[in-house]
């Protein structure tokens, strides 16, 4: 019983060691690629998403009822909304 419990307790540490050793022992190209990933994700989430890609309906309307009213208006009377 104690043996099983001991093994269960060591699983998180084994997973942690697996990942940390893996990241530490990466080759040069891996570091370059990780840097690119970080830059890419920063541009995507902290520049593009934040400043250029707000959710149009969520930012303009407070609830689903207002959103559906707006979309129905757009679909049935596009001229009014585009003027």
């Amino acid at each position: 019983m104690n043996n099983i419990l001991y093994k269960l307790l060591t699983v998180p540490k084994a997973i942690w060691d697996f990942y940390s050793q893996g990241f530490r022992n990466q080759s040069k190209w891996s570091h370059q690629v990780w840097l690119l990933i970080v830059i890419k994700l920063f541009i995507m989430f902290f520049v593009l998403k934040l400043f250029f890609f707000p959710n149009f309906l969520n930012t303009k309307y407070n609830n689903d009822q207002e959103r559906s009213d707006y979309v129905i208006d757009q679909l049935t009377n596009p001229k009014k909304s585009l003027e």
Binding site: V33, W34, L36, I37, K40, L41, M44, L48, K49, F52, F53, P54, N55, F56, L57, N58, V71, Q74, L75
Partner: peptide
């Protein structure tokens, strides 16, 4: 690694450019 998350941009566009 280079390609990962490039598809997320499309989801951004759905919410912003293609809301209808």
């Amino acid at each position: 690694a280079i390609g990962v998350a490039t598809g997320i941009i499309l989801e951004f566009e759905f919410g912003t450019n293609w809301s209808n």
